[in-house]
Design a protein around this nucleic acid. Sequence first.
RNA 1: GUCCCAGUAGCUCAGCUGGAUAGAGCAACGGACUUCUAAUCCGUAGGUCGGGGGUUCGAAUCCCUCCUGGGACGCCA
Length: 558
Amino acid sequence: MVEQIKSSLVAALQNAIKQAVDKGQVNQTEIPDIIIEVPREKGYGDFATNLAMQLARSAKMAPRKIAEAIVENLELAETQVERVEIAGPGFINFYLRTSWVYGVLPLIPQQDRNYGRVELGDGKRIQVEFVSANPTGLLHMGNARGAALGDSLAAILDFAGYQVSREYYINDAGNQIENFGKSLDVRFQQQLGQDIAMIEEGYHGEDIIDTVKGYIQKHGSSLAEADESTRRKTLAAYALEEKLTNIRNTLLDFGVVYDEWFSEQSLHNSGAIEDTLKELQKKGYIYEQESALWFKATEFGDEKDEVVVRSNGIPTYFAADIAYHKNKFERGFDQVIDIWGADHHGHVNRMKGSMEAFGYNRDQLEIILMQLVRLFRGGEIVRMSKRTGQFVTLEELVEEVGRDAARYFFVMRSPDSHLDFDLDLAKSESNDNPVFYIQYAHARICSILRQLQEQGRQVPKVEQINASLLTEQAELELLRKLAEFPSEITSAAELKSPHRIARYLHDLAGLFHSFYNSHRVITDNEDLSQARLVLVDCVRIVLRNALGLLGLTAPEKM
RNA sequence: GUCCCAGUAGCUCAGCUGGAUAGAGCAACGGACUUCUAAUCCGUAGGUCGGGGGUUCGAAUCCCUCCUGGGACGCCA
């Protein structure tokens, strides 16, 4: 509805400028994209535009003069605008009839779970690849942030009208699997009483000791008789299976469900990597130096070229990644989003460059880098180190603070900012905890509705109420916030910013709590009660929808 | 040395595709439960937007430069 109002204002403004130019009140000029914003201050109207200031330069006129001419030619009979004002350096402020906000009320119960959906994506296919942690270990905090972020982003994009696919890339090939096999073999032999040390570049985590123990329990120790290569391969395959199952289940518990688990090994098996390299070679983007093959990343603006095939003939991770991303586009995605840890930023430009080499637009691949996560407990940093094998896993985190708190904390900050995750705060059942604050609002509404039910009544139909009884400041602000939900979805999807939804939720919950404290919903005034019941039911719907986008539950009781 | 991210209230952060008096939560201080859940609300206080230049009618936002913190610079992934 906000969108409709905005576009009607844009249309009216476009017309007004044209008129003003025709009449010679404003110099001939190009008309920029007209932006209608919601002013920060309530005193500046319901909507505003800086159009006159934008035109000032090209029209070579004072902004206020232009604004006056525009306003003079504005045709607003078809809109809800009650009053227009020129303010400050040349803002045009629109004041709407207060009744405009009542327009949301019928929409929300009617659209229910779909309220907030927009058609920004226009059905375009978009893929979000996230987590993709090495299947050689457990999921850590970085992966957890990626999981929360990726899943919420996918949900938001879906809500914004894209056809979304969630994907996990399994790094089940290459060096680290080799290494994994070696490490497992060491642990295996140690279990059988051999006195050998873990290799330096191996996996020191305790978890693979359990894996090996499990293997021996199931299959005995006859593998010890096999040659080294067989031992490594057998153990690696066994462990991979186990780790992947574990990762899948952990993510499932975290509320993340993938559409596709894509195996790197499959790219080796199908010859896709080889074909990709050949194609690049044919295009002239590959050269040989010191018996290795290099990709000319510098032709696409990167700082240096990058090896794709090592001098030992084995392709690098990058080669596989090129083949993988090419494969994504061949599957028909219009847009591909990767969520990576910031430590991979050096990989971004060459990855985009490689897609450009295949004729795709580099912007079709969008890479979201997220900064590190630091855990705090009792005011102290919880140190994490993969090398020494000491780290808090996603599983442990969910166990400690719960899934809702964990997911909210990961998405409440922009990916760009380092995240300080306060474990004590996340599990505290106090007013400090934003997750509870939001969920409590939902629970409170449900409590009112229960009360209603106990009286044998139900929420009235919108058509049965007199919405114009909702005249309190708190009510109008709530209505307005509800009306803004769809445009909030648009922004969050455009800017790929789930944290905007987290913020929106917090704001909406705040407005509700404020309303709740100063006004009763069920009162002696029957008509007013009816109107308020519809209002709070609408708040319930929007809270629930938004919570759902972040993968959080909407509890009916707390 | 080069590149990326950050630097905004005591703390954690929004705002950054340029707009009006820079916002929120926590912490601090003072208030509000005989009423649908006080896990809540209301109020007060708190700012050279890291420093310095520049572009602009207008800069937290764009450009340059310097400082601080984190990360990346491998024929690892």
